[in-house]
Design a protein around this nucleic acid. Structure first.
Length: 564
DNA sequence: GTAGGGTTAG
């Protein structure tokens, strides 16, 4: 590319990137020249080390080029901006027009390509790099892990001549993301250096893998904690339904940033305590912490899960004015969910039509689940059709639609939907529930009698079933398996995984204590009704976390108000 | 002043 073209092209590419003016000029200045260097000392490189001439040498001579080091940095920053906006082609034009590139420029390009899903381009640039250093290898390790190739990442790691704490932590993340906590812990113990990042990684690993007690121990052991550590343990308590502990951590934490506030707001929202969530939102503003897009998702979720329609609308429509946050598709989906769940399906649909985005899978799923709650088969069909296209691998729209048909007795359509699902090679995701008793997780699937205490669980459930019927419980078999007879349906429902877990939890924990159940799917309608009765009969608070929210069953009611 | 690891979402 000619210098002339470069002169013309560069300023326009630079100025189109956010935050850059036309003021950049190529100057004839004494300049430092990039000395490509591999990292050999195991120390973290900082850029000044890379670009500044050694103090004991005379200043670098003027470059023959008029492209200074400062110009190179400015181009690199512009490339980063283009990449963040998804403008890979513009970034590449700018990259190609640069007379010289630093390692940082390459890294910015490679990471940018990976983030935009262009892994082939990223790999190509990586191969073209004249000198690769530890950072280059770390980028490749990270993306191998993201693309589920931990083995390749580990190979790169093993081949590194010198490893620093970032490299170690990258691989640690790989183990954690693959659920390999034992290997992860062994790896962590072997690390020659640990900093607050690596401690936070192992902490979040335990939380992501559901090992809260281990996480609590790590949190206590940590030699250094920062706000990220506090936020991690806070979200851990929230995810596990320990609202009181979460609240006391929140009150205790030395610094509350936007993530802390957002975590507690989302936590209260998911537990169905909308008012508390909104109170925290008000306190957050009082504390002069600016909400971000996610905070507003939390606020709208709070309104949605508690049925606060007017408040939800108010927050949605004042977002941009009060906080300078333009509603994105998540915010629209929240409001659509709020309206839909409250039965305002027409309004929800109109909002969907008027939004400045194409509805995505989340939007349609939200609408579909509102249709399920309100038995709107026609709209449900449309939403499900859209989801078949958008997420062809997803079994949920098939199952929901089939249940919608079953609820209105359209057995032929049920059959067709199940058949279509089968033809697509999609199988129903297996549901299971688990409960923690004495630091041990007990996992159950439907009709699963492999547990050593199965006989007593079964007997207990039979006994509960009789008492539930006395209390007025009628099993709702309308949307359960249609191809088995009524008695068998009831039998299957009686031993759904959540009921086995609830029964075991009640049997094995001291009376008066809450029972905490987790389920990997949304709780079924009949079990929801049954657990309301069970909570009353057993005199227990039963807290059930499904994929959507927490349900608090107490005294015959659930705090979701039967909308979920 | 630009590049690699940790926190909040449905």
């Amino acid at each position: 590319m000619s210098l002339l073209l470069r002169r013309n092209l560069l300023p326009s590419l630079l100025s189109s990137a956010q935050g850059f003016s036309h003021s950049m000029r190529f100057r004839h200045l004494h300049t430092t020249i990039l000395r490509n260097r591999t990292i050999t000392d195991g120390q973290r490189q900082n850029t000044s080390q890379l670009f500044e001439p050694p103090a004991n040498k005379p200043p670098a001579r003027p470059s023959s080029s008029d492209f200074t080091h400062s110009d190179m940095v400015k181009c690199t920053i512009a490339i980063r901006h283009h990449m963040r906006k998804g403008q890979c082609d513009t970034a590449l034009l700018l990259f190609n027009s640069m007379p010289r590139k630093s390692e940082v420029t390459y890294h910015t390009m490679i990471s940018g390509y990976f983030s935009n899903g262009e892994s082939n381009m990223a790999q190509q640039l990586f191969d073209e790099m004249p000198v690769k250093n530890l950072v280059s290898q770390c980028i490749m390790m990270k993306w191998n892990i993201k693309y589920n190739n931990l083995k390749a990442a580990r190979l790169l790691f093993d081949e590194l001549p010198v490893k620093d704490v970032v490299a170690w932590t990258t691989i640690l993340t790989g183990y954690i993301q693959n659920g390999l906590m034992d290997e992860g812990k062994r790896f962590f113990d072997k690390m020659p250096d640990k900093d607050v990042f690596s401690w936070n990684t192992i902490l979040s690993g335990y939380i992501q893998n559901g090992l809260l007690d281990e996480a609590m121990r790590v949190f206590d052991e940590m030699p250094v904690k920062n706000a990220v550590s506090w936020n991690t343990i806070l979200s851990g308590y929230m995810q596990n339904g320990l609202l009181d502990k979460a609240k006391s951590v929140f009150d205790e934490m030395p610094v509350k940033d936007v993530v802390s506030w957002t975590t507690i707001i989302i936590g209260y929202a998911r537990h169905g305590f909308g008012e508390e969530a909104l109170q925290h939102f008000e306190s957050m503003k009082q504390a002069s912490i600016q909400p971000n897009e996610l905070t507003m998702v939390g606020v709208l979720t709070a309104c949605s899960h508690t049925g606060l329609i007017d408040k939800g609308k108010h927050y949605f429509y004042s977002m941009s004015q009060d906080h300078g946050i333009v509603p994105n598709i998540c915010h629209y989906s929240c409001l659509i969910g709020l309206l839909g769940r409250a039965g305002h399906l027409d309004e929800a649909q109109n909002l969907m039509k008027s939004m400045p985005f194409e509805p995505n899978a989340v939007t349609w799923s939200t609408l579909l689940s509102a249709c399920r709650v309100h038995g709107n088969t026609k709209l449900g069909e449309k939403a499900a059709e859209m989801l078949f296209d958008l997420e062809p691998w997803n079994c949920v729209p098939y199952v929901t639609l089939s249940n919608l048909y079953a609820a209105s007795g359209r057995w032929e359509d049920v059959k067709k939907t199940r058949l279509k699902m089968k033809d697509q090679g999609i199988s129903n995701r297996r549901g299971y529930s688990w409960v923690e008793v004495l630091n041990k997780i007990h996992k159950f699937s439907v009709g699963d009698f492999t547990h050593p205490d199965s006989e007593s669980i079964r007997a207990f459930l039979e006994e509960l079933y009789l008492r539930m019927k006395e209390e007025g419980y009628v099993s709702s078999t309308k949307s359960a398996l249609h191809d088995v007879d009524e008695e068998e349906k009831q039998h299957t429902l009686k031993f759904h995984s959540e009921r086995l877990a609830v029964a075991y939890g009640i049997m094995k924990t001291p009376s008066g204590r809450p029972v905490r159940i987790f389920k990997n799917l949304r709780v079924c309608e009949d079990c929801h009704m049954a657990i309301k009765h069970i909570a009353k009969i057993a005199g227990r608070l039963i807290i059930l976390r499904d994929t959507n929210r927490f349900h608090y069953f107490e005294g015959g009611v659930c705090n979701c108000g039967d909308y979920w």
